[in-house]
Design a protein around this nucleic acid. Structure first.
Lengths: 234, 234
DNA sequence: TATATTTGCGTCATTAAGACACATTATTAT
DNA sequence: ATAATAATGTGTCTTAATGACGCAAATATA
């Protein structure tokens, strides 16, 4: 379908439209970002957010999912629109408008693979991210800010944690996202009072100390809470 | 610059990019939306959000401001990006990606004028908006939802009220946005405790009853509160 | 068996929120 | 003038949430 060059003509000039994704993962200790090493110019060899050009038969969200599948092998993940960047000089190839998304994924859902255009994907701790291609530093910062504010009024965890988890693990997730320390006992009280946790009978074992109780999220209550929002001031 | 037709050719097809604006105004009683009556096809004669096509030398935000100035005569207003809509069939003229914005304006800053393309602009109460062109109903709903959630964690009022105002007026603004009734005395306590109001010596007069005290926002404290956020659970 | 480490539950003081009562002020009607 | 009306402003009381801790229980290791 794209065989002929110089095929598409318009009365007025048009920008290209692309999507880029800020993908957050949690390994139990740190918040991580998934980056792609660019295999082609511009910015060849530099790290960048996964993304690519919009096709005429897909929405920007579909584009983001497709590019993620192609470049990282991930599919069926939680995706939300972040912001649209349109600075005139943000891409040396010409005028490019980028619709950015952010995604929350369980670490184990993702197998690091090379992409389809000679690129490779890798997790980076949020505080050890190298300088990125294009204006992706800014997109990443906007994504992280959004996540930090979102966690204040919507439950986060289901999308980032394994199905079975402990409250201390959930607390480490909150601390990794917000970059602050919270009181263990108050966190416990707050998260329990939300009434979205289902206890599992067995505890965590073999950790060299008292094992924490295990839980899973009550999906219905979790989604209901997500819809009506909450106030997580911890 | 746009004299020749069929001038711009690309290797791959590209969507058009436009901006649309949800403009909120407050007249002291109701929340209003500014709409444009379309003077040309498609949807000629129907009401629509103000907006238009992106030019190559401007960002989407600059585009939104330019279109607003052209179509409604408004400039220098508070503008914030809302959402980007990219459904494949959202515009009968072809593939159009729209970056939407919402704006908060003081009613008196705006003089209703006809636009430059034989269209006319008019305020509509938020609950008496007619069926709109394109997918603008959806954009409007997203804009109103955003405003409702935003008011919960950022001060709103400075952008929508006159410079001098009373607390009951501010309360009516909150009630108009949220669509609920709040207790007068608790609202008073809450808004006063935010420490962003500067009292003016004279009261409101000639209103048939006790006149309310007048205030203005302390700009610095207002902006500081806006940056750090708040929790307005009223 | 003692020790270290981490988890789970409880307490207490402070603050904020929701529901009202009551006094004050300015205009209008008698 | 005086009373009635219709708002506004301040205060009280109860209940709920928050922040800062204390202490006991559980589990692997010395």
């Amino acid at each position: 379908m794209k065989d002929d060059l110089n095929k598409y003509t318009y009365d007025y000039p048009r920008p290209s439209v692309t999507t880029d994704c800020v993908i957050f993962g949690f390994d139990g200790f740190e918040l991580n970002i998934l980056l792609i090493e660019r295999g082609i110019e511009p910015f060849k060899g530099q790290w960048a957010l996964p993304g690519g050009f919009l096709r005429m038969e897909e929405t920007t969200e579909e584009c983001a999912r497709r590019e993620l599948a192609e470049e990282t092998g991930m599919d069926d993940l939680y995706l939300e629109q972040l912001f649209t960047f349109s600075d005139v000089k943000r891409d040396p190839r010409g005028r490019v408008v980028t619709v950015s998304y952010y995604a929350l994924v369980k670490s184990t859902d993702f197998k690091v693979i090379g992409g389809d255009d000679a690129s490779s994907a890798k997790w980076f701790p949020i505080h050890q991210v190298p300088s990125l291609a294009f204006d992706h530093d800014m997109i990443l910062r906007v994504g992280h800010d959004r996540l930090k504010s979102k966690i204040r009024y919507q439950p986060i965890g289901f999308e980032l944690l394994e199905e079975v988890f402990t409250i201390p693990q959930l607390q480490r997730l909150y601390e990794a996202i917000l970059g602050i320390q919270v009181d263990r006992r108050n966190f416990n009280r707050k998260i329990t009072s939300l009434d979205i946790l289902e206890p599992i009978e067995n505890k965590l074992e073999g950790v060299g100390h008292k094992g924490a109780r295990q839980f899973r999220f009550d999906k219905e209550k979790y989604q209901a809470l997500k819809s009506r929002g909450l106030n997580f001031e911890i």
